[in-house]
């Protein structure tokens, strides 16, 4: 346990030192505050609009940016240490492989969680202070949003570690991470839409929403949309609305999506040669 904490502590420290924490905080808070204030600009006015539309539009932006940040943060977690020579060195210390890997994930997970909390939390505070939304609904809505965003970040950190533990070069890890982001964030949804259009909507209606659970970014969107079910939805999310997943079951699926790559990364890292 102590070893895991030592590694995690060092990773978090590293994140502060190389300005990762600061830059993620700034990006997320600018995004969140900007959206909260200028979200209705298209409708010809500025100022805070309704809580639900703010969160839903925040979620649809966060779904792009959070996986990207998480992958960039963690893609060199294993392969970078290997190239530095520190992986070999660490393996001569009284520390097992899973402890090292878990420690690194916990540390970078903390970087992600802290930055998400500060970045999006700042927008919640702004909204609470300057709009007429009451604090209670604000906190619960932002609570669900921030928690799911953190989980989404963790899922992609774990995916980044699967990539990092499988390859032998940093540049390869970066390339695969980019493809991975592209697939989960863009291609998957297009594929599902293509499936719908191609079959002229002739797919099993009860089965189809469950296909969305195969993609953690879609689960993240569902979490936030299901919380504000009164929104007018377009695209894939409208389909899922018919099948009401509970928020809890969606969080459960995100957790499953976290455990899966974490265990895969462990197995792959254990087999990695030195």
């Amino acid at each position: 346990m102590n070893a895991i904490l030592s590694v995690a502590n060092k990773e978090f420290h590293d994140g502060l030192r190389n300005r990762w924490v600061l830059s993620i905080c700034i990006i997320l808070s600018v995004l969140a505050i900007g959206l909260a204030y200028f979200g209705a600009a298209a409708a010809g006015k500025v100022g805070f609009t309704s809580l639900s539309s703010t969160i839903v539009s925040l979620a649809s932006l966060a779904v792009f940016i959070i996986p990207l940040i998480a992958l960039m943060l963690a893609y060199d977690g294993v392969v970078g240490e290997d190239e530095n020579g520190t992986l070999l060195l660490l393996m001569t210390y009284p520390l097992s492989r899973w402890q090292l890997l878990l420690g690194k994930m916990v540390g970078q997970g903390a970087v992600m969680a802290f930055s998400t909390l500060v970045g999006f939390g700042s927008s919640a505070v702004m909204m609470g202070l300057f709009s007429d939304t009451d604090w209670q609904s604000l906190l619960s809505a932002y609570g669900v949003f921030i928690l799911s965003a953190i989980l989404l970040g963790w899922v992609f950190i774990a995916i980044a570690y699967v990539i990092s533990a499988s390859v032998s070069e940093k540049s390869k890890a970066a390339g695969i991470a980019l493809i991975c982001w592209f697939v989960f964030v863009l291609v998957f949804d297009l594929g599902l839409l293509g499936l719908l259009v191609g079959t002229q909507g002739n797919v099993d209606e009860t089965l189809f929403p469950y296909l969305l659970l195969l993609n953690p970014t879609d689960i993240f969107r569902l979490v936030n949309i299901s919380w504000f079910a009164d929104q007018n939805l377009t695209g894939l999310m409208a389909i899922a609305q018919q099948t009401q997943f509970t928020t809890l079951s969606l969080f459960g699926s995100l957790l499953a999506w976290l455990l899966l790559p974490v265990s895969a990364a462990m197995v792959i890292f254990n087999r990695r040669g030195l």
């Binding site: 060092k10 420290h13 590293d14 530095n84 020579g85 520190t86 070999l88 060195l89």
Partner: peptide, 8 residues
């Protein structure tokens, strides 16, 4: 050839 952690 060990290069350690540049930022620390």
């Amino acid at each position: 050839n060990v290069s350690f952690y540049d930022q620390l």
